[in-house]
């Protein structure tokens, strides 16, 4: 199937909302994680990608960081960090996977739960995204790669991360559009990228490189 619809670049602005829910040990973290809004799960596993572009954090997800640093549960921290975010297409699945790791660990734990030092509690927050058009539109493959090189990281984040996980689209928006245009091989190659293993700038470079190579044949 091919369509002549152009690719419309959207971008997002974000606010962080606080829930007032906090945890000081693994049990509280697990219990709250069952009930907080899905947008909390998304925020704590994704906000690091857009917070600082100049440095890769040790762990991208806040649960892994907090468990390692505030609770000194290094092994669990590594297990949480190793959860493959790319294998989920909904926040619900992602939440269940994190809960499964926490519950398995708690089941094997003896004695009272370890508590974080006062002042280092885990505070659940959620992100609220405001989606708007950038005014940038691409009609052809050449046009697409050219425009992609110049849109903001937040635009890239929206089309790659938000669209898949929060809007529950089957793939990222770029791959979807490229497949609709008949560029299925390129669409698949971009879909196979692991955006969680790179910074947004690196992700953009990689998509641009794949698209240019494809266009050259």
């Amino acid at each position: 199937m091919s369509s002549n619809e152009p690719f419309v670049f959207y971008t997002e602005r974000r606010l962080v909302a606080l829930t007032g829910t906090k945890a000081k040990n693994l049990r509280e973290l697990t219990e709250s994680l069952r009930t907080v809004p899905g947008s909390c799960v998304f925020y704590h596993t994704h906000h690091q990608y857009v917070s600082h572009h100049f440095e890769r954090p040790v762990f991208y997800n806040d649960f892994a960081t907090w468990v390692s640093e505030a609770l000194q549960e290094r092994r669990l921290g590594e297990e949480l960090a190793a959860i493959d975010l790319l294998s989920f297409t909904s926040v619900r699945q992602l939440r269940e996977a994190i809960l499964a790791v926490l519950e398995r660990y708690l089941a094997g734990k003896q004695g009272p739960p370890r508590e974080c030092p006062p002042g280092e509690e885990f505070h659940f927050a959620r992100s609220q995204s405001f989606i708007m058009r950038t005014g940038v539109v691409a009609g052809s493959l050449e046009d697409f790669v050219d425009k992609l090189s110049h849109v903001s990281n937040l635009s890239l984040f929206y089309h790659f991360f938000e669209a898949r996980l929060r809007l529950e689209r089957p793939t990222n928006d770029f791959s979807q559009w490229l497949a609709d245009q008949g560029h299925e091989r390129l669409a698949k190659a971009i879909d196979r990228l692991d955006p969680y293993a790179m910074t947004l700038d690196e992700l953009r470079d990689e998509i641009v490189r794949l698209t240019r190579n494809y266009a050259r044949g």
Partner: peptide
């Protein structure tokens, strides 16, 4: 400024402005 906009959408996680 975003907060001024957010006041109309406090319960939504994703707000489509266009």
């Amino acid at each position: 400024m975003l907060l001024m906009i957010a006041l109309d959408h406090t319960q939504e996680d994703i707000v489509h402005l266009d």
